[in-house]
Amino acid sequence: MARLSAAELRERLRNDLPAALVEPAPLNLKAAPAHGAQAAGFITTDAVVAPERLVAAALYLRDTLGYAYLSDIAVVDYLADGLFELGYRFYHVEGGPSLVIKTRVPRETPEVPSLTPVWPGANFHEREAFDLYGIIFTGHPFLRRIYLWDEFEGFPMRKDFPKQGDKYIGADE
């Protein structure tokens, strides 16, 4: 069974792909004021790579380390920090725990290179991320909304998406 910890992965990446790894800043994940004390900053232990080196890092995981199985792409909207974080989760086909590489993009220009051309399994994950968060995956062959209809405006999973009202009816009615 392949057992590579997050720290070991960071070490490997530092040696083999020195340009890819970035030092993650602690996230100011803000709890709602109604829930008492402010949460402390959240520092991830996973390897964070620069968005432009994402494909290289993912291919390194697959081809060199053997983590060929892309399980999940999870987007998190850190509104207070002004960024989206994408977590790519890989597994080794022989078993063992996962390896995660994360990448952070600013909320204004959420562009990430697509993994779909080299990894067809990323297709629906990326379309889902585009649909709900508006992440643009450059190089995706068919980046269209997957759940919502094409005319839908806005990205409903973003933290600043209005939770009240109906924009098709308008505020007056």
């Binding site: 994940l29 709890a31 709602a32 829930h35 402390a40 959240f42 999940d72 999870a74 998190v76």
Partner: peptide, 17 residues
């Protein structure tokens, strides 16, 4: 299930794979 907690009683992010 991918969960992100901000220390409150509600999940900050809840993702289903």
């Amino acid at each position: 299930f991918y969960l992100v907690s901000d220390g409150s009683t509600k999940p900050y992010r809840y993702k289903v794979r």
